[in-house]
Amino acid sequence: MPILLVSTDLMVASQLEGAARAAGETLVAAPPARAVASVAERGPRLAIIDLAAVEDCATLVAALRAVLPEDARIVAFGPHVHTARLDAARAAGCDQVLTRGQFLQRPGPVLSGPA
Rank of each mutant, 00 (worst) to 15 (best):
L86K: 09
R21I: 00
R34A: 15
D71Q: 14
I74K: 01
D9P: 04
Q15P: 00
P31V: 03
T83P: 10
G113I: 07
C57T: 11
A89C: 07
R100Q: 05
T8D: 05
P114V: 08
H80I: 07
A84G: 04
T26W: 07
P109H: 11
V28Y: 06
A66T: 10
I48T: 06
A88F: 04
F77V: 12
L64E: 01
R85F: 08
G18A: 07
A23Y: 04
I74Y: 02
G93I: 01
S112G: 14
L64Y: 02
L98N: 00
Q15L: 00
L5K: 01
D71L: 12
A63E: 12
A20E: 11
A89H: 01
L27F: 02
P107N: 08
E25T: 09
L4C: 09
C94R: 00
A29E: 10
G18H: 09
I3Q: 01
V67C: 13
A89S: 01
H80S: 12
G108Q: 10
A92V: 07
R42N: 15
L4S: 07
V81N: 15
A52Y: 01
F77D: 08
V61Y: 02
R42Q: 15
P32E: 03
D50E: 08
P69G: 09
R100K: 05
T59E: 02
V28T: 05
V75W: 06
Q96T: 07
I3M: 03
T26M: 11
E41S: 10
A29D: 09
A47R: 05
S14A: 12
L104W: 10
P32M: 05
P107F: 07
V97Y: 00
V39M: 06
A22I: 02
P32R: 02
G113Q: 09
V81E: 15
R106S: 05
A19W: 00
Q102R: 09
G78Y: 11
T83R: 15
A35T: 01
